[in-house]
Design a protein around this nucleic acid. Structure first.
Length: 594
RNA sequence: GGGGGUGUAGCUCAGUUGGUUAGAGCGAUCGCCUGUCACGCGAUAGGUCGAGGGUUCGAGUCCCUUCACUCCCGCCA
């Protein structure tokens, strides 16, 4: 028999009454009645109430034992009278009468209470992460994460994928995020880089003929953090398949996600088949390439209307002449909303740094009219035109914004969210997935005006390769796609370009000579020259999937030992200075700016 | 690199227009209490008001600088 426990703290039930048991765990809570002491003993599995009274010789020392001390108790399982049953816990029908106890691990005065619903500063949580992790909510989140990952592994196996490890110490890549570098002792002056993703390796796995690869892969990027983005490191469900088209990848992910999200959340999926939305359409209708489809509001392009002669809204007319567009958002049945609602949106838009949002409400007083600050500028005919273009009906209101395209997308996207929140149009109890497809291969850098890859340079361009018009690179679309859920980008993916000649061609458009491509991507290009299968894949972020399932807004809530915003581990004191010896061995000298 | 928020007891927070000795709950320590499950009651200890500088007769409160944490922009092919 194990000397620490016969049962865990969530195991004992009515049928165990009369058993002699041994339990070990943390003192979660004490309720001291002077001559009678209740102890909630907690372990990973749950809580068991233990009880001891003054008659027992251990009483006094147990009474003085700190919360969060680890103890072992021996005792008898006893029945609870009906009026003392605790329905909140699984073991609530019984309790353990303590015969004797032993301290297994003492506990100093706590820097933060473990048994409490209070919120604490991030600093103290991260410094004492091992205490923070004992708390119920985050403890359960971490267990959920584990279960989700093992479920995904299992499903991937079922779908015919095999898991392969790829190197952690690899070479620095010229494109993309900043690399974390690791100095090489054996090769003075040279550095390894930690992989930003196993992108090139998984393609090499395909070239090696393994057909279906996946990995729960750690990825390292030296970029600044956000609430939904860990600094430094995160995990992807990295996968790649040979001899596939875009739809084959979609089918795998849809099958996997539908199963996973149904299993681990009670929220409803809007549909099992995720809608495909082109990048262009998404920017127009939602102002972003990660639309929250729970939000029913849609953005309409209405520049034309403001150019009509019977519309006299001169401010917009002037802006349009200088290259601006007008887009609008229709809100259903808002004619009775107070003036403060409309002005609030306008003021909010101005606070966002835009020129605000003009609005009116459509009413029918013998004929169609537009009520609101800019209503008077519109003829009856122009209003009918607007209604036709936007689907707006009498009783609806319309918010207009006018700006240069990029600014316009930004503000209408934010406004779409803002207005929907104000009108409570977003259902918290659903997952709305979608695919964003048909990303452009290239884009123009807004600062330098140079052509650059808009996403992954290794993506396959769409269309017949022989017919591609390389003179109009901005028109070339790629088999490049994102999957988005509730406005959160879970992943990008692509069908890869496995044809070296085509790759040289595409790189030449952004100004790379063949030689440079050979140099910078030697491993890839070389491999693709020896019989590469058509292949493609995707890499959904594990942390964000778990965030959605756990209903958390911050990635630290689903990460066991996260770093803070400055990419420091306050508990382990990383990063830290190293001694001269270590530096010397690595042929490094430090030059630190003061 | 830039912008916003926060910083007062071990923890969570209050602190009025700048005005006497900076408070509460939880926790800690001590005492009382045999059916609690956020047990109850009483007492005690615990403070560089993040730090530095300034204005003022007087600063937790106003100003400047700085640090820490956090959210956002940039960045994240």
């Amino acid at each position: 028999m194990n000397k620490y426990r016969t049962h865990n703290c969530n195991e004992l039930r009515k049928k165990n009454v009369g058993n002699k048991v041994i339990l070990s765990g943390w003192i979660n809570k004490k309720r001291d009645h002077g001559n009678l002491l209740f102890i909630d003993l907690r372990d990973n599995y749950g809580i068991t109430q233990c009880i001891i009274d003054k008659e027992n010789t251990s009483f006094e020392s147990l009474e003085k034992t700190q919360l969060e001390t680890v103890i072992k108790i021996e005792g008898d399982v006893i029945d609870r009278s009906k009026d003392t049953v605790n329905k909140e816990i699984d073991t609530g029908e019984i309790e353990v009468s303590i015969k004797n106890f032993k301290v297994l691990g003492t506990c100093k005065e706590l820097p933060l209470p473990v048994f409490s619903d209070q919120e604490y500063s991030e600093e103290i949580r991260l410094r004492y992460r091992f205490l923070d992790l004992r708390r119920k909510k985050i403890h359960e989140n971490i267990i959920l994460r584990s279960k989700v990952i093992s479920f995904i592994r299992n499903e991937m196996n079922n779908l015919g994928f095999l898991e392969y490890q790829t190197p952690i110490l690899t070479s620095s890549s010229p494109e993309g995020a900043r690399d974390f570098l690791v100095p090489s002792r054996l090769n003075p002056g040279k550095f390894y880089a930690l992989p930003q993703a196993p992108q090139q390796f998984k393609q090499l796995v395909m070239v090696s003929g393994f057909d279906k690869y996946f990995q729960i892969a750690p990825c390292f990027r030296d970029e600044d953090a956000r609430a939904d983005r860990s600094p430094g490191e995160f995990y992807q469900l990295d996968l790649e398949m040979s001899f596939v088209e875009q739809e084959d990848i979609f089918n795998v992910i849809e099958a996997l996600f539908v199963k996973t999200f149904k299993k681990f959340s009670s929220k409803k999926l809007v549909s099992n088949k995720f809608p495909r939305i082109s990048y262009k359409e998404s920017l127009l209708k939602y102002g972003t390439d990660k639309p929250d489809l729970r939000n029913p509001l849609i953005i309409h392009e209405v520049t034309e209307i403001f150019s009509r002669e019977d519309v006299s809204f001169d401010i917009f007319k002037k802006l349009i002449k200088s290259g601006c567009n007008v887009r609008c958002i229709v809100t259903k049945n808002t004619k009775d909303k107070p003036r403060s609602f409309f002005d609030g949106i306008d003021k909010w838009a101005k606070d966002q740094g835009s020129s605000g949002m003009a609005y009116f409400t459509l009413e029918n007083e013998r004929e169609i009219t537009a009520n609101g600050p800019i209503g008077k500028f519109f003829s009856r005919e122009s209003l009918k035109d607007i209604m036709k273009k936007t689907g707006a009906k009498v009783g609806d209101s319309i918010f207009f914004a006018c700006n240069k395209k990029e600014e316009l997308e930004k503000i209408t996207s934010l406004a779409r969210t803002k207005i929907a929140n104000e009108l409570k149009l977003i259902s918290e109890n659903t997952f709305a997935f979608c695919w964003i497809v048909d990303y452009p291969m290239f884009e123009k850098d807004s600062l330098t005006n140079e052509i650059k890859f808009s996403h992954n340079p290794f993506s396959m361009p769409q269309g017949n390769i022989d017919d591609l018009n390389f003179n109009e690179p901005l028109d070339i679309l790629a088999y490049q796609y994102d999957i988005v859920c509730n406005g959160i980008e879970l992943s990008s993916g692509a069908i890869r370009n496995h044809i070296p000649e085509l790759m040289y061609k595409l790189f030449s458009i952004v100004g790379y000579q063949k030689k440079e491509v050979d140099q910078k991507f030697s491993g890839m290009i070389n491999a693709l020259s020896y019989g590469a299968p058509p292949h493609g894949g995707i890499a959904p972020g594990i942390d964000r999937i778990v965030m959605l399932l756990a209903n958390e807004k911050n990635i630290r809530e689903v990460t066991m030992f996260p770093m803070n915003q400055n990419a420091e581990d306050l508990m382990m004191n990383a990063p830290s200075v190293v001694n001269e010896e270590q530096l010397k061995e690595l042929n490094l000298t430090l030059k630190i700016k003061k």
